[in-house]
């Protein structure tokens, strides 16, 4: 039984990373109906910026983290301004392909730096060891990851419920025409959504850096795992991103923990989320909390 709970706990930790990553993804989709295939690269940009600042400039990890969040937000903002804005009103395939192209460009740029290949780990800033509770061990970084995710989500929740900008963003997601006529700058909201997505992506990257090592492929892989998460939770639902993230994290760990033994080569955790994705698409395409699209002639 303690094996089960151990898997559950590590699933929640992984799931909180997915939840954060998915949050940014959903923000972009909600505001501008764009599926961002470069999300994994935003995660990588955030994580490696923090790593570069803390190792080469010798900044403390916390300052480096804040600067990385800001930098990724700027990257997100200008990505929207430069590359996505000219494509407003174009068919979906163009918008999808431009994010795929951007993913390739970002990948190339990261490969231009020494961080393209190899493993890196953020300098330790937390005490070793962890909490032991009834045979289940949780390390401090893991604990921090969950707490940090919780705080981050609460901050975003406050931002969307209370702040003017957040309310404007929700209004645009709801009805662009109506919010435009009430004086909300839809263009600005699109760019802000990308900036906010950059922040959450960087936060996810930082957490990965805290609980395990950084490597480009792994970080970009999180960008792919976001798809099962958002489909399960509902593409346009922020609570869905959080719930979906944690469920997928748990399922992935459970699958790896219980099924790997029966499969030559293992690695069940990598594919299981996508099987879930297909099942959800077959039986409940709009996910747990997504808005059902009703079509009328």
């Amino acid at each position: 039984m303690s094996y089960f709970f151990q898997l559950l706990v590590s699933g929640i930790v992984v799931g909180s990373v997915y939840a954060l990553a998915a949050l940014g993804f959903v923000l972009i989709y909600k505001a501008s109906r764009v599926i961002n295939f470069a999300h994994g690269h935003f995660i990588a940009i955030g994580a490696f910026t923090a790593y570069a600042l803390s190792t080469s400039l010798g900044l403390s990890v916390w300052i480096a983290a804040v600067l990385a969040l800001a930098f990724t937000a700027i990257v997100g903002y200008f990505t929207e301004r430069i590359f996505l804005k000219p494509l407003v009103g174009q068919p979906i395939i163009s918008v999808i392909m431009v994010t795929i192209g951007l993913a390739s460009v970002f990948g190339g740029l990261i490969h231009m730096t020494p961080y393209g290949s190899g493993n890196f780990s953020l300098p330790g800033f937390l005490p070793e060891g962890g909490v032991n509770f009834a045979g289940i061990s949780v390390s401090y970084p893991q604990l921090l990851a969950v707490v940090f995710t919780g705080v981050f989500l609460a901050a975003f929740g406050w931002f969307f419920q209370r702040s003017t900008v957040g309310i404007a963003m929700r209004a645009v997601a709801d009805d662009q025409m109506a919010s435009m006529s009430l004086g909300v700058s839809v263009e600005k909201v699109f760019a802000l959504a990308w900036a906010a997505a950059g922040i959450t992506a960087a936060a996810a990257g930082l957490i990965v850096g805290a609980i395990s090592g950084l490597n480009l492929e792994g970080l970009v892989g999180i960008g792919l795992k976001v798809f099962p998460v958002v489909i399960l939770g509902g593409l346009d639902s922020i609570p869905g991103a959080v719930v979906g993230g944690i469920i997928i994290g748990i399922l992935e760990n459970m699958a790896a923990g219980y099924l790997d033994a029966y499969i030559p080569g293992g690695g069940t955790g990598d594919v299981f989320p996508f099987l879930v994705l297909l099942l959800v698409l077959w039986f409940k395409p709009h996910g747990l909390f997504g808005t059902e699209e009703i079509e009328r002639v």
């Binding site: 392909m97 431009v98 190339g108 490969h111």
Partner: peptide, 16 residues
């Protein structure tokens, strides 16, 4: 590094 960079730029520039 340069190959994905050129590939991605080709897609993006053509689309725009």
């Amino acid at each position: 590094a340069i190959r994905p960079l050129a590939f991605g730029l080709a897609i993006v520039l053509f689309l725009i």
